[in-house]
Design a protein around this nucleic acid. Structure first.
Lengths: 204, 204, 204, 204
DNA sequence: CATGAATGAGAATTCATTCAT
DNA sequence: GATGAATGAATTCTCATTCAT
């Protein structure tokens, strides 16, 4: 019966467990990390663990949510507000790509693990979706805000496509270690997306 | 001591185990599938399993290899030869996207599981890479073959980008169940890639 | 991860397991005794077993140590202090032989098993050696204490020989069931040792 | 159904298996040696193994018998005939001790393993007994043959005692590696036994 | 509330023995 | 007779979860 931490001490303990989980899931993966280990890392007893979390999966979900909300709040959350809408289409797309880039620099290893589990655990999938979605929504509203310079009809689908392409490129750049220079790849990515989304600039 | 099957019967048995593994890993995931279960599904004794495979991970690798080589041989392998090079740029890209689509229709669930494990198991990652690579190489050579109609400079990087975008779209369409109509998405995908790769057609 | 029992309850549990091991190893031998059986006999879960012992071999070692220290402390340990040094040489040797006899009445079956394993398990051999050694040392110091009545030069080697002969006789009397009357054998044994160790008595 | 080898080829095969068993049991111990391994070492199929032996234990027994009869025939068997009865009592005992010494030089490791199992396997115990017995009987008849110089009354018991002491000393010298010089120990052993068995020489 | 020892179902793996070819 | 692949019971060990203190 996971209790809701009311006192400060409790909250602190729960936080410690989440941090420990984040660290260990990242380092060793979900399946290879044991509860005892997590408790030790958090400086907490096994019993306490079950005071705050239903089971190991529950911890994973909360760890991922913490990670996810970091990304969402920290980066995608502000994507709309700070977008350089007055800039060139190239600049706008570059801003979007850079945002994603920042998000993925955060904690590659944990992301890896989340990805590894989202296909089996519905909670995980939901979370992943909400992260992606928040990115997608951000892009959508940016595009909405410069609808007159936009070429494509269905902003929804276009956003999906573009964010998908960006995400994938991030993964292939950060999780696998491709030989191609990252910067060249990102440039091309921006090129592709700009060309797809925006009307050609007059004087180009 | 994994014996190497020489005789027909043995080969057949090994194949059965691989098929069983493919099925169960797809349905329940690697971690939730037990050896006994696999053996039962294959109509084989546990002892026999260990006659052909070192352990469960060994089976996973071989299952994935089987799956991978299916895709490679069956689809990406022939991508270059059968590409409609004389068709319009749109048709060419459509052909590429459709190939990917076929590959992913094959065994979505297993692919899911492979993806889930490639981040922890080096063997798995290698395999995934070789599949992706075979696709990428196919696209590269197609582009090579109509270089005069191609807009982009670096075919290598462009292929990577395009195959990445296509793969990602496939996954988001087949593994997650997006609400948007698949066909619309694929159309847009083709649009994006065509616009990026090819010079604009005269009479457009 | 064999926990070291600090609290009373834990110690009690560990003791129970050792007793169970002692019993079963004695009755059925090391190889034919399973962990589950041991746990059941001890009234403890399998998990608990692994809480206190690294594995079955670890239990064997600790069982043997317990048994060994019983013998050493209980019998050989006091051999020097209580030896009837003022008695006749025959009485002294009789005392030594009787001590050994007591030691071997204790737990013949387990001793059997220890013997059976000392040739393969270094830990076991070490233990056996330390038991024998403690006996030998005891004999040495007794002989030291009546050096003037002693015939042989090298007390060390003589002790080794004598304790060896005594041990062997014990084993052949207790482990195998010889037909000869034990008492006659022990008498002769005493005779042999006395004659070897001590100068002949004047009035004999 | 262990068949009795009639043809030469069969006999040869069986012999090979026994030799293989002897080697492997010596090297790795009974429990850690597998049937497949034995068959391979013997250059024979697993099926064939079961053509000649009922099970692994059966092989052990036969291996031990082969080993035992080697000792018996080769050494203890001839002990009586070749004893230097005309020599001094010291020479006679020395001859007995040397015989035992030879017997134990033969295959220390296998003997070790036999010892390790004789306490559990009745067949094994029987065999060990028959070896010991053959030694004991040999000693008995030697003593019988110089009864006039013998001090002790009961030759039977005295032989048992003496052979026991000799055996034990052999084991402690060959199986454990005592630091004391072997030759000194053997000299003392001879001393002890001579003193016990024989009347003191007049002119000594 | 906290603790961490206890639990025991479940998982992987081995290997003596059989038997179809 | 010979072969060696097949069998599956038996064994060891792990670890998420509970609960008495």
């Amino acid at each position: 019966m996971a209790r809701d931490p009311i006192q400060r001490r409790s909250k602190e303990k729960k936080r410690k467990i989440i941090v420990a989980g984040m660290k260990l899931f990242s380092e060793k993966g979900f399946h290879k990390t044991g509860i005892v280990e997590i408790a030790e890392e958090a400086g907490v007893s096994v019993g306490s663990f079950y005071g705050y979390f239903l089971d190991k999966k529950d911890l994973l979900i909360q760890v991922s949510q913490a990670y996810g909300s970091n990304i969402i709040r920290g980066i995608y959350g502000r994507i709309t507000e700070e977008a350089p809408l007055s800039g060139s289409s190239h600049e706008i797309v570059k801003y979007i790509v850079d945002s994603a880039r920042q998000a993925h620099t955060l904690s590659t290893e944990l992301h890896r693990e989340m990805l590894a589990l989202k296909n089996r655990e519905p909670e995980m999938a939901k979370l992943d979706k909400s992260i992606t979605c928040s990115f997608q929504t951000g892009v959508e509203s940016i595009l909405e805000n410069c609808r007159d310079r936009i070429k494509i009809q269905d902003i929804r689908i276009a956003s999906k496509l573009v964010t998908g392409a960006i995400e994938e490129t991030m993964h292939s750049c950060f999780l696998e270690h491709s030989e191609e220079p990252k910067d060249r790849i990102f440039e091309e990515l921006i090129e592709m997306c700009t060309g797809y989304l925006f009307k050609p600039t007059e004087l180009n």
